[in-house]
Design a protein around this nucleic acid. Structure first.
Lengths: 260, 260
DNA sequence: CTTATCAAG
DNA sequence: CTTGATAAG
């Protein structure tokens, strides 16, 4: 059994202040994927950022306080890959991959497109290049669990106000179509939907207004898996009892073991 | 009887959050001089920044969130002067003068010199030019109350750790000599010292460390008056019961009336 | 350590 | 609205 958690911390130091590292050991996770660390490695020298029992890997953005991913792994990976060979994936530390025996776990932070047309164009370009990468991964003799803040909702059920958000980044028709392609053509599976078919649960609530209080959320974070793992998903839960950031942790249990 | 209060708010909006404008009306002051408003006029449109019963004057720095002075006056001044004709006094909104019948009250924010040698040089230049201005004022047929964060301690009694601060901005020999000149040659009087001869009271405590808790302070704020007002000082107090900023308000009572 | 601004989400 | 960087004190 493998327990894999993914969470966008919106600043790993801020999440730490809110008790994230008190909560984490209690989860007994095998792999923890983090997005938006918003910190450089030299700002994370404090032992709290290297929890006991885990091998910790960080991938920073060049720009301070921006983006960044991490993977904490109980088993030492055979290899850790932090480069896709193209920017801004590399220069913004948006990708981190831990390779185990026959399995890889990826922590990905997809660009947001909400700030302007220019950043949406950047997101669209990222989607295009990353889809190519995902296709390449499908050809490997290896299974993948891609833990990400995808910054896209697939269907109407995935966000509270789908009608009013059809022209907003994260629920644009071409973004949804990108996920259609990912699932229907490239063959990946959204592990959350495998378990919770008709459940309108969200993983992100804006900090503005009363989004959290009114549960005006979006399901932006999920673990996408290769087809052979489709019958291995034991549970898929969103942790909302505490709030470490504007995103909630995704906790998935799989019927396989992670071997280094 | 005239009650004149001066205080460096270290951000008038922050001071407001800490209850400054709840405290102020209870003081029944005739004139209130403020330094370090750190806000532009258009950021102070809320009525709290225009307390009932006062004519309010603000002088901003060009740079947002930096410096800035204010005067609140119960009696409407005959004239309000916000320019000394030179920078950075004008461009940083460091000077504001309210003219009444035979008396002027000034709100002044002296530059700090603690950040670098370059800012100390700027402070020194300001001291030089401002001394000229103060000499000019002495020639007027008018009394002056200069309410300021002077950013200088005069004597050893004026700061907790005078020995270790002899090479630090605010207690440099030439800064202290500048005050010697102001008092001994130009003839101004520090109204606080007139009342509290040997009292080691401070008006500013660093936010760093435990300065406030340990009363490691500096007397940087005081009301400097022209000689003819020397026998008019009724009381001079530092208000420490509440904390609106890193500086404490100076409350002085004078045996004269402010007439518009 | 605290103010405030700014970029980004 | 919130994180984090930066400037300034």
């Amino acid at each position: 059994m493998a327990k894999i958690i993914t969470v966008n911390t919106n600043g790993i130091r801020a999440a730490a202040r809110k008790g994230f590292f008190d909560w984490l050991p209690k989860q007994d996770a095998d792999v923890v994927c983090i997005q938006e660390t918003k910190a450089q490695v030299d700002q994370l020298e404090d032992p709290v950022f290297h929890p006991q029992g885990y091998h910790c890997y960080y991938n920073d953005a060049i720009k301070k306080g921006y983006s960044g991913t991490a993977i904490y792994s109980r088993v030492k990976p055979r290899k850790v890959i932090s480069s896709l060979g193209w920017d801004p994936a590399d220069s913004e530390g948006r990708y981190l991959q831990a390779d185990y025996d026959g399995l890889s776990v990826i922590s990905l932070y997809m660009p947001s497109g909400s700030s302007s047309e220019a950043v949406q164009a950047k997101k669209d370009r990222f989607l295009e290049l990353f889809l190519d990468h995902l296709k390449v991964l499908r050809r490997k003799r290896r299974e993948f669990v891609i833990c990400a803040d995808w910054n896209i909702c697939h269907r109407e059920i995935d966000l509270r106000n789908w009608k009013s958000n059809q022209k907003n980044s994260g629920f644009l028709p071409h973004e949804r179509a990108w996920l259609d392609t990912l699932y229907d053509e490239v063959g990946y599976i959204d592990s959350f939907r495998l378990i919770n078919q008709d459940s309108d649960q969200y993983t992100w609530w804006s900090n503005r207004g009363q989004a959290w209080a009114n549960n005006v959320g979006w399901r932006l974070d999920y673990q996408v898996i290769t087809p052979k793992l489709g019958d291995k998903v034991l549970s898929a839960d969103i942790y909302k009892d505490e709030r470490f950031s504007d995103h909630a942790p995704q906790i998935m249990e799989y019927d396989f073991d992670i071997k280094g």
